[in-house]
Amino acid sequence: MTNAAKFRELVKTGKPILMPGAYDPVSAKLTEAAGFDAIYLTGQGLASQFGFTDAGLVTLTEQVERAKYIVNSVHIPVICDADTGYGGILNVMRTVREFEAIGVAGIHIEDQVMPKKCGSMSNRQVIPTEEMIHMIQAAIEARQDPDFFICVRTDAIDCEGLDSAIERVKRYEAAGADCIMLMQGHGNDLEDFKRFNDVLTVPKWGVITETNHWVRHTPLWSAQELYEKCGFTIFNYPLALLYASAKQVKDTLDVIKREGTTQNWLDHQLSFQEFTTLMGLPEVYETERKYGRY
């Protein structure tokens, strides 16, 4: 069964799908080891690996190259942030084919203008609805595997208001989107998101905020709340792993600078054996034994 088919089967259950945002093979392997059923490749997390903020600076080829290593490091489906599709109609079609070719289970594309920004940043703008519909139709035409999952994200709630966003997603669904992702707007509440449940029949994807300092200052709703009260079934946590890792690195650096040793900090680290096991060292030894290396 392909990764795309695996993800489709998860979606068909109608149960909540929680996808932490991995940004490299280590975070992906940890996510799989923790028992999650799918992984989200976060755009901001990937941009950070190049030393960038998430402002449309990562190219398609860079995103695909990193995604390939993550997909190959795990056995569960990976869904990737594909930004705006990296250009016009032909770019979107290439984007679908490139991600599909490396075994990604699906992507999401968004209706922001280029260069785009992270959904938690201000000063975002969206393209006309008709233009986005053409993007969706081109993406669907480009995929070879009908199971390849194409989610469409709208940032229109902040840019144009709730009513406009609702009208947009109705048309995105009609154009063939497999799923709709909603970026929360400033001041929205759960009652607002119930309205999307009334007009959409495709699965709804909620972005779970990991910090109360996002520019929109939205509440830190749980997946369970959005599932039970608003009918959302797919959830990503795009920045939780990245921010937690950055905090841990910062704290470890403070210890090294202050104490000159990590002797009193070992409980905050994986051991050598834990880390090398995670990364596949036992399998390396087994293969070497199999072929008489030692």
Rank of each mutant, 00 (worst) to 15 (best):
I208Q: 02
V26P: 06
T209K: 00
E288G: 02
V11P: 00
W221D: 08
V96D: 06
Y69L: 02
Y86P: 09
E9C: 11
D155M: 07
A156M: 02
Q144F: 00
A38W: 03
C118M: 09
A4I: 06
L57Y: 02
R124G: 13
N188F: 04
L57V: 04
E286S: 13
K68N: 10
Q137R: 13
V255S: 14
L30D: 05
I70M: 07
K290H: 06
D145G: 03
G106Y: 07
I70Q: 02
D83R: 01
F272H: 09
E65T: 11
E191G: 13
G185N: 12
D178F: 03
F196E: 14
D192N: 14
D145L: 03
E62P: 00
R97C: 09
I102K: 06
E65G: 06
N3R: 09
I89K: 13
A175L: 11
T252M: 14
E65P: 00
I17C: 11
I133A: 11
K116Q: 07
Y69K: 09
L266N: 12
S73Q: 07
R168Q: 02
I140C: 04
G14R: 09
T261F: 04
V92K: 03
V284C: 07
K204Q: 11
K117R: 15
K68T: 06
D251N: 14
V126K: 04
M114V: 14
Y237K: 08
W265P: 00
T95E: 08
K29C: 12
A105E: 03
E259I: 01
Y172K: 11
F193T: 05
V249R: 00
H134N: 13
R293H: 15
R94S: 01
T209G: 04
G14K: 05
F232L: 11
T84M: 10
C159P: 00
N197K: 10
L226N: 03
F148C: 03
G51K: 01
V104I: 14
T154C: 00
R171Y: 05
C80T: 15
A223N: 01
L57W: 03
P128S: 14
Y69W: 05
T59I: 12
E98H: 01
I133V: 15
V284S: 14
T233C: 08
T209V: 02
T261Y: 01
A177K: 04
V202I: 06
P238A: 12
A174V: 07
V215T: 15
W205F: 15
L162H: 09
A223K: 01
K12F: 12
H75I: 05
L278P: 06
N236Q: 04
V74I: 10
C118Q: 10
W205N: 08
F272K: 05
R168M: 01
E274G: 11
E131Q: 14
R293W: 13
R171E: 13
W214H: 15
E228Y: 00
A4R: 01
T261L: 04
V207S: 07
D83I: 08
Q49I: 09
R94C: 01
L18E: 12
D251T: 11
S222K: 09
Q269Y: 04
D24R: 10
G103D: 08
V152L: 10
I150L: 06
S222M: 11
A5L: 13
L182Q: 10
L242T: 13
M135T: 07
T233E: 12
H134T: 12
C159I: 14
F36N: 05
Q248N: 13
